[in-house]
């Protein structure tokens, strides 16, 4: 399969999944008890003007399928409806908050990659007590929920020692990284532990391979062997896990943002659920799902660049 055909096929599959999930997100409204109108307006009731606005926004006077395509059309024009609580377009709310979530997830991804790969490689190459310590820490890290880590970090480093700010995102630039550091650490603990475990297994496996033994026998320096022959081959399972992990961080961010009171998409989602602001819920869920699916697809394509031996589109 040629590269462009493969990419086209991937994009086609991606669009199909997105179409179905968008339909499901749209359909959520009709799973709710009571009529859609009553559900959206909730116990607030609503003025005739609000009723007219909601009817128009969700095209409630049209048949079901027409409603869906009208809603989808609005989506493509960037019109996600209006928030009934904030009384402003949902897309404005999303744009102002997407940056925080993106920064948080990116910072966490960097921490996971650095800590996970270093700890895993170190454990595999040193063995002995280093291996024991890393494995034990990884087991504990894997069992610790994000919010427990978050609470512990705030109590220790923000309130107790006062090294970090407790809440909020700061005023941009380095200050933002400073503010986002603890949340990013909280978000990355479980995934870094998992990545360390995977890296350790992968490196141990590669070290026993014949080409590595050959290189050792030929007297190449251990450092060169580790870098060129062991790590490069171990990179394939590591990238797989790292990619999948970044996708799950998007969900973890929902919890972390609430612990650290960051104004990202996740805290917006939880607030919207509590306030029954359904247009916002739909929009955030849609954004999270799209991000999740797209990241997974990108990781899939990246394999072929990391390892030329994997043929395009093969399911290995």
């Amino acid at each position: 399969m040629s590269f462009s055909a493969y990419i086209l096929k991937r994009i086609g599959g991606l669009l199909l999944v997105l179409l179905v999930t968008s339909f499901l997100v749209f359909g959520l409204l009709y799973l709710a008890p009571g009529s859609p109108l009553a559900f959206i307006l909730g116990p607030r009731g609503g003025t005739p003007a609000q009723i007219a606005a909601v009817t128009q926004q969700y095209h409630l006077n049209d048949p079901f399928i027409v409603r869906y395509f009208a809603w989808l059309g609005d989506l493509f024009r960037g019109n996600l409806g209006d928030s009934i609580v904030y009384r402003q377009p949902v897309s404005d709310l999303l744009f102002s908050r997407a940056g925080t979530t993106t920064a948080l997830v990116s910072l966490a991804a960097v921490i996971i990659a650095v800590v996970g790969i270093l700890a895993g490689t170190f454990a595999a190459l040193r063995g002995g007590w280093v291996d024991q310590v890393v494995s034990t820490l990884a087991a504990i890290g894997l069992s610790t929920p994000v919010f427990v880590v978050g609470v512990a970090l705030i109590s220790l480093f923000a309130v107790g020692l006062g090294w970090f700010p407790t809440f909020g995102v700061g005023s941009g630039g380095f200050d933002t990284i400073w503010h986002l550091f603890l949340p990013a650490v909280a978000l990355s603990v479980a995934s870094a532990a998992y990545l360390a475990r995977i890296t350790r297994t992968a490196v141990n496996e590669e070290r026993t391979r014949e080409h590595v033994q050959t290189a050792t026998v030929r007297g190449l320096s251990p450092r060169l062997i580790v870098r060129r022959h062991v790590l490069r081959n171990a990179l394939i399972p590591i990238t797989t896990v790292l990619g999948l992990t970044i996708a799950t961080l998007i969900a973890g961010a929902v919890v972390v943002e609430n612990v650290f009171a960051l104004d990202g998409l996740g805290s917006l989602l939880v607030k919207a659920i509590l306030q029954r602001d359904f247009a916002v819920v739909q929009a955030v869920v849609l954004v999270l799902v799209v991000a999740f699916v797209v990241v997974n697809a990108i990781v899939d394509v990246l394999y072929t660049f990391i390892d030329p031996r994997i043929s395009l589109g093969s399911k290995q």
Partner: peptide, 22 residues
């Protein structure tokens, strides 16, 4: 199953809460 995989686990719980209440 692939479609279900497209939604992160905890988000399913949150969606259910958004519809049927906490």
């Amino acid at each position: 199953l692939d479609i279900l995989f497209a939604v992160p686990g905890i988000v399913f719980g949150l969606i259910a809460v958004a519809i049927w209440g906490p």
